[in-house]
């Protein structure tokens, strides 16, 4: 039991001509240790949703429970919630402000009330985790490349050692190598530390490759919620709301239409390869440990 959303609604600028309902009766249960992907078209309420999870935005109606406690309770400590639910915004490199990279990463831990030494240790660990070369630690964050800045900003949240890590499109604007680095880092954090990870993404391939569960948002409500295989079975419905399934799903569906006995549930290239080999040669590559 980690985070539970109960009929959460959010309306922007209520009572004016600009009124928009961004979230509509959202019910979600986010279990500890899950790796969840949130997908949805632009303006579907993804960003609004994740900002509710650490109390940055207040729901117009509905309730959110963190470990069984109502976060809108008078005596609930929202800062404590933000310490435990780390949120990496879109383009997080725009929030860097300190004179050195190291100081910037220390900002979060220091706000948690840690001593200078402890904060420093945390920063050190986080920067090493994101793979920053040590000779850069005392340089200005503004001199870095875009990908490096992004990693420093993510380190800034990791250094707070959150139980739940939420990332809003962490790979937007990065090259393929930078994208893989960030996602592998997140997957490693999930594996090694057992933290809950929520990944907002537009890339179906990324989501299919990394997450255990997908939540599809459409016009402010949850459209689908399930494993990647379950969700991508609805690829036609996903297309209707401006989304898509991974390329592999299309390929497998087309091959099946041509009469090949392949598994249309395959969502990653590795799965597709195994299923194709099996269909073509009759060898179950996964059972024979037939990798790459």
């Amino acid at each position: 039991m980690s985070i539970i959303l109960d009929k959460v609604n959010h309306i922007y600028s209520p009572g004016t001509a600009y009124e928009i309902q961004a979230l509509k009766d959202v019910n979600l249960k986010i279990e500890d240790g899950q790796f969840i992907g949130i997908i949805g078209h632009t303006g579907s309420g993804k960003s609004t949703l994740i900002q509710h999870l650490n109390g940055l935005m207040k729901a117009t109606s509905g309730a959110i429970y963190f470990h069984g406690k109502d976060i809108y309770d008078e005596d609930f400590d929202l800062r404590e919630l933000r310490n435990r639910v780390g949120l990496v915004f879109q383009y997080p490199e725009h929030q860097l402000f300190e004179t050195t990279i190291f100081d910037d990463v220390c900002f979060g831990p220091k706000n948690q009330g840690l001593s200078k030494e402890e904060a420093g240790l945390r920063a050190f660990e986080a920067l090493r985790n994101v793979g920053m070369p040590e000779e850069l630690y005392y340089q200005s964050p503004f001199d870095l490349s875009g990908g490096q800045k992004r990693r420093v900003a993510i380190a800034g949240v990791l250094a707070m050692k959150p139980e739940v890590l939420i990332l809003d499109e962490p790979t937007a604007g990065l090259d393929p190598a930078g994208r893989d680095e960030i996602l592998d880092l997140v997957a490693r954090m999930h594996r090694e530390r057992g933290i809950t990870v929520i990944l907002v993404s537009h890339s179906m391939e990324d989501v299919a490759k990394y997450v255990q569960r997908i939540v599809v948002m459409n016009r402010g409500s949850v459209m689908y919620d399930g494993t990647p295989k379950e969700v991508f079975r609805h690829y036609k419905e996903l297309e209707a709301v401006g989304l898509a399934a991974p390329q592999v799903t299309y390929l497998m569906n087309e091959l099946k239409a041509y009469g090949l006995k392949v598994d249309t549930d395959a969502t990653t290239i590795a799965e597709a390869r195994a299923s194709l080999l099996e269909a073509l040669t009759g060898i179950d590559s996964q059972k024979n440990d037939f990798h790459r």
């Binding site: 900002q51 650490n54 933000r82 310490n83 949120l87 990496v88 915004f89 900002f107 707070m160």
Partner: peptide, 12 residues
């Protein structure tokens, strides 16, 4: 946006 990002990092 920046305010929220810093609040997410515990800024007050």
């Amino acid at each position: 946006k920046i305010m929220k990002a810093q609040m997410a990092r515990g800024a007050d």
